[in-house]
Amino acid sequence: MKTNKIIELNDNNFKKNVIEKKCLILVDFWAAWCSPCRILMPILEDLSKEYVNKVKIGKVNVEENSYISKKYFIKSIPTLILFNNGIIKETKIGSISKSQLKSLFNKYI
């Protein structure tokens, strides 16, 4: 079975791995102390395997990457931003279920 590893994004590699990529990428803005963020992580891991070669998933630790967090006006976490070919398509703030994420992905695949 193929596995799609969740990409660790940061201030330095965000442009190369998100903005310049010609694909669908979900970016999770999170922090280690955030309970809803920790609840979301296994869901994102499952979806990264289920949607391998369809949707890439990356995560940005907001405490370690203030530049990119400020650039996208991240005020609450988790914040999920779906990019398609480097363009923001949708933003979701707060907890979101696996079925809601699947619906979001399927809208753009």
Rank of each mutant, 00 (worst) to 15 (best):
K2E: 12
K2G: 13
T3S: 12
T3P: 11
T3M: 13
T3D: 11
N4I: 01
K5D: 14
K5V: 12
I6A: 04
L9I: 03
N10P: 02
N10F: 00
N10H: 00
D11S: 08
N12M: 08
N12Q: 14
N12D: 15
N13P: 04
F14P: 11
F14V: 09
K15R: 12
N17V: 06
N17P: 07
V18I: 07
V18K: 07
V18C: 03
E20N: 13
K22V: 07
K22R: 13
C23W: 10
I25M: 11
I25G: 03
L26H: 01
V27T: 07
D28L: 11
D28V: 06
F29E: 02
F29S: 04
W30Q: 01
W30S: 01
W30I: 03
W30A: 01
W30P: 03
W30E: 03
A31K: 00
A31F: 00
A31M: 06
A31I: 00
C34F: 03
C34G: 07
C34N: 08
S35V: 11
C37A: 06
R38V: 04
I39R: 12
L40C: 02
P42I: 00
E45G: 09
E45C: 06
E45W: 04
D46K: 15
D46I: 00
S48A: 14
K49C: 14
K49A: 15
Y51L: 07
Y51A: 07
Y51P: 06
V52C: 11
N53G: 12
V55D: 03
I57M: 06
I57K: 05
I57F: 10
K59I: 07
V60I: 14
V60Q: 09
V60G: 10
N61Q: 09
E63Q: 14
N65Q: 07
N65S: 07
S66L: 13
Y67G: 10
Y67C: 09
Y67T: 13
Y67M: 10
Y67W: 10
S69W: 00
K70H: 14
K71P: 08
K71M: 12
I74W: 01
I74C: 00
I74F: 01
I74P: 05
S76N: 15
P78W: 00
T79I: 05
T79P: 00
T79C: 03
T79K: 02
L80P: 01
L82V: 02
F83P: 04
F83T: 02
N85E: 14
G86H: 02
I87S: 13
I87D: 11
I88T: 06
I88Q: 10
K89D: 04
K89V: 08
E90R: 14
T91F: 05
T91V: 13
K92F: 05
K92L: 08
K92I: 10
I93W: 01
S95I: 09
I96C: 02
I96K: 07
I96M: 07
S97T: 15
S97E: 05
K98S: 10
K98Q: 09
S99M: 08
S99Q: 11
Q100S: 14
L101C: 07
S103I: 12
S103H: 13
S103M: 13
L104N: 11
L104P: 11
L104C: 12
F105V: 07
N106A: 02
K107R: 10
K107L: 04
I109D: 10
